[in-house]
Amino acid sequence: MSLLIASKIQNNPKYLELVHRRNTLGWSLSAIVCVLYFGFTLMIAYTPDILTAPIAAGSVIPQGMLIGVGIILASCVLTGIYVFLANKTFDPIIEEIVREASK
């Protein structure tokens, strides 16, 4: 990559927008996963009673089981959201940036 192309890209507002949007999306979704998972982990560590309480009187299924399976499903859904948004919004911007820089 030549310095000329590099400086063209760096001064392209679309590039700055791409970086900003991808970082915002990536770190926000990471934060959601961390909150969900470390919330679960902190419950394991400090309030296991909530996790081990049955979901309904007479049932043996603990609430933690639903929460755990819920986090697995949420992980799949959140990766799906990222891929959907990235395919739809980031790829066209990247193409434009690369095309404009090589002009």
Binding site: G26, V33, Y37, G64, G68, I72, T79, Y82
Partner: peptide, 24 residues
């Protein structure tokens, strides 16, 4: 029993992080 699920959840949640931060 239930304890096994804690490992499964922990092993899965690394994946979204890989995608959001490092894969591309």
């Amino acid at each position: 029993g239930f304890y096994g699920l804690i490992f499964s959840v922990g092993w899965l949640v690394g994946w979204p992080i890989i995608l959001f931060l490092v894969a591309e």
